[in-house]
Amino acid sequence: MSILRFRPDAPPALLSYGFRPFFLLGALYAGLAVLIWLPMLRGALETQSLFAPLDWHIHEMLYGYLAAILTGFLLTAIPNWTGRRPVQGYPLLGLALLWIAGRIAVFFSADIGWLATTVIDCAFLTAVTAAAMIEIMNGRNWRNLMVIIPVSIFALSNILFHLEAHFAGVSDMARRLGIGAAVVLIVLIGGRIIPGFTRNWLARENPGRLPAPVSRFDMATVLLTAFSLALWTLAPATLATGFLLMIAAAFNAVRLARWAGYRALRDPLVMILHLGYVFVPVGLLLVGWQIVDPARLSPAAGIHALGAGAIGVMTLAVMVRATLGHTGRALRAGPAGCAVFTAVLIAAMTRIVAGLNLAGPWLVELSGAAWAAAFIGFVLLYGPMLLGPRVERQAP
């Protein structure tokens, strides 16, 4: 999509569009937070957080890293949906500082208290949700208003996370609600961008079969996925939940097959989107299977298939593509970009295998190292593009 032109007194490049500060901050934090988490997992490091160590890890992956990337995506996509000017300059800086304040507050919550931490941390997603809703409504872009539903649920799950952690000592329902909202966003948005980008590439480079057009099957898949994840949130141990999640996995697998991804093997920027979506049915299947047969499967496998896999791979794929496209670069991953994609795929797959208890605990460290390499690699490779001005579009 085209990017809006700005006035001569436009702000610095970093504050000209939402994807710039939030992709940079989110990627850097994704790598550093996992490097902090690994020694915490082994008992070698402690935070000043009121959260239990596992709660801190889950919270910061969802409401730290993912919240930043989601914000960058929304603040970049909404102006293209509505034709309105993007949030930029001081308002964008204010949102970035609010996100940073949330990370500091959560890390040092034992010093500032749970209520102050909750207010500071939850203010960010509340502000982002409100800004997104106002922009979409002012632009009368009713078609995309449905995106606000999972975004709002994601923001509410952060509030619930703080309340559960304080009053119950550990989060429970909020974890599943946050992951579920994120997966619904991937299913909803992925269903637009993956077949769209695939169709564009195939029409230009490999004429023949194209992705199936959007149909009632796609809507049924989205609704079934949302309903099964809602049931998982409320009743995570019932057989009905397990079987419904596995049915949703089958629907998403068929949906992915309809997008003709195998015909775009020569374009890493397209293929990584398909590979990222693979983790949606895999994750739903593993979560459902664990509910049906808990003696044979650990919950960690399915959770990390959805988290490190679907969320991690899909967000990184979108970050790379959006950074290249919106800064005027050619849409080519190149060897370095492929290395970043490979690292995040290794991180996801090894963490799933570790969750299946098929190898030793060293796989967790390998997964964490690969994850950090992928996201810090993104910062090193694409950070200068995010910090610098837009260049003239190069030939594809």
Rank of each mutant, 00 (worst) to 15 (best):
R103G: 00
G102A: 06
I112Y: 04
A96F: 10
G94A: 12
R85E: 14
R143H: 08
W81Y: 12
I153K: 03
I104P: 00
L62C: 05
A165D: 04
W114Y: 14
L66W: 09
L177H: 01
G89K: 10
A168L: 13
L185G: 00
M61K: 09
I179H: 12
A131M: 14
R140P: 09
T117D: 15
L97S: 08
F124S: 04
F167S: 13
L188N: 03
A68V: 10
L115M: 14
S109N: 08
G64A: 09
M146W: 13
V151S: 05
F107T: 15
P86S: 08
I136K: 04
I179D: 08
A116D: 09
A96Q: 13
F154S: 01
G64N: 07
V106L: 13
D111A: 14
L62Q: 12
T118R: 14
S152C: 11
G178Y: 06
F107Q: 11
I159R: 09
V184S: 02
I104G: 02
L75Q: 07
L156F: 14
A131D: 06
L92I: 05
R85W: 00
T82N: 02
W99Y: 03
F108D: 10
W114E: 13
T76N: 08
L163T: 14
P86T: 03
L97F: 02
I120Y: 06
A77Q: 03
L75D: 01
V106M: 09
Y63G: 01
V119N: 06
T82C: 04
L93G: 12
M146A: 14
G89I: 09
S109A: 08
F154P: 05
A182P: 04
I120H: 11
F161W: 11
R85H: 13
L93I: 08
A67H: 06
A127V: 02
N144H: 12
N158P: 11
T71W: 10
L93S: 02
T126H: 06
L115W: 15
A116P: 09
L97H: 09
T82Y: 04
F107A: 15
G169L: 10
M146F: 10
M173C: 07
W114T: 10
Y90N: 13
T117S: 15
F73K: 05
